[in-house]
Nucleic acid binder design. Sequence first.
DNA 1: CGATGCCCCTGAGAGC
DNA 2: TGCTCTCAGGGGCATC
Length: 282
Amino acid sequence: MPELPEVETVRRGLAPVLEGQRLERVELRRADLRFPFPEGFVQRLTGATVVEVGRRAKYLRIFLDRGDALICHLGMSGRFEIDHARPGAFHQRVGEEAKHEHVVFTTSAGTRIAYFDPRRFGYMGLIPLNTLEDHPWFAGLGPEPLADGFDGKVLQAALAGKRQNIKVTLLDQRLVAGIGNIYACEALFAARVAPQRPAGDLTAKECDRLARAVKTVLAEAIEAGGSTLRDFAAADGALGYFQHRFKVYDREGQPCSGGCEATIRRIVQGGRSTFYCPACQR
DNA sequence: CGATGCCCCTGAGAGC
DNA sequence: TGCTCTCAGGGGCATC
């Protein structure tokens, strides 16, 4: 579910209720999500104070005053809920709440922050700060697409020699970090690049357009509070609304908005749906 | 190196 | 109403 804009939206929701607060209570409802929780998870977190809530790629990184960072990956269906969130914003059915509530944090201010994850593809870890960037989750990550260092030149260098199609290549977190299926489709449309193109064949001009498109699409999605397809919500319960601005994603058969006569097509690449306009994207 | 398929898990929606 | 099938924002692995 959550790609960079959704994770950033969650980060912005959590920061004000977590930063400067002590974790008074930490409750674990099960021993694992995608991976087992680390040894001594509850003990290592209880009593720690949150210094900062950060993000790298699709990971939340909650820095603690004890020399550890709490890392959270939301997988496909992970979300946080703060107790003062709008009632009913997260759960359509009574009883669903307790079933998928896996971790509950209570801060020194009395705020209750719960982590839900029906599919349990998400995971959490506790990593010492001095080894954070060397940890396997972070060591191989490509640049943050919204950082100044990411541009057409960097992108072209990363794509050089690759015969894999550009759509699947954009999802490779080692080349650029944080792009997922929605924003890969949207960025390729905005850059007018066909998803089937071998990545290494993109010209300097196209790499420039694509790098800009990635930045624009991600930035606009963050501004819109992310995309809510099925169940995404910010930590305060607010729904994203960037899905209303999708040009191609999930729009198979609908007319293209790019001024051509074509309709949006869906193909499968790397086992995932790609949506694109066969006329606008070349 | 790359394409493909399968796996983790649960729920929603479509079609019958 | 209920059954079955497909698909879903992520990502790792095995195989050819």
